[in-house]
């Protein structure tokens, strides 16, 4: 751990930044080459956010211990009525409780 910049690290970070920017502009480049969006493609595009975010959630839930599962289930129930931050706080509280009171 040092506070000077490591050239190799910087190169890696900039490569990652370029790769990330390419993903952010890539869909625009693709879509502007096509005149209209076919309905099926539009339906597919509309499903993208839920489809991708699910892949960040599902493995965390199934690979997590009972503490993580409990936290996420509590958060799921809270989210049916309350906004995101309250849901997050409820999940966090559930994880803290199961870890420190029940020792999961």
């Amino acid at each position: 751990m040092s506070d000077i910049l490591n050239p190799e690290m910087l190169l890696l970070i900039f490569a990652a930044a370029v790769a990330t920017f390419l993903t952010r502009v890539g869909g625009y480049v693709l879509i502007t080459r096509m005149k209209t969006i076919p309905p099926r493609m539009e339906q597919a595009l509309n499903a993208v956010p839920a489809a991708v975010l699910t892949t960040l959630v599902a493995p965390a839930f199934f690979n997590g211990g009972w503490d993580v599962k409990t936290a996420m289930l509590v958060a799921l129930m809270v989210s049916l009525r309350y906004p995101g931050l309250i849901m997050l706080a409820a999940g966090w509280a559930a994880a803290m409780t199961s870890r420190h009171l029940f020792g999961f």
Partner: peptide, 11 residues
């Protein structure tokens, strides 16, 4: 647990 819970909220 915050990260997966946050993503779940987005879903």
């Amino acid at each position: 647990v915050l990260l997966p819970t946050y993503f779940m909220g987005l879903v």
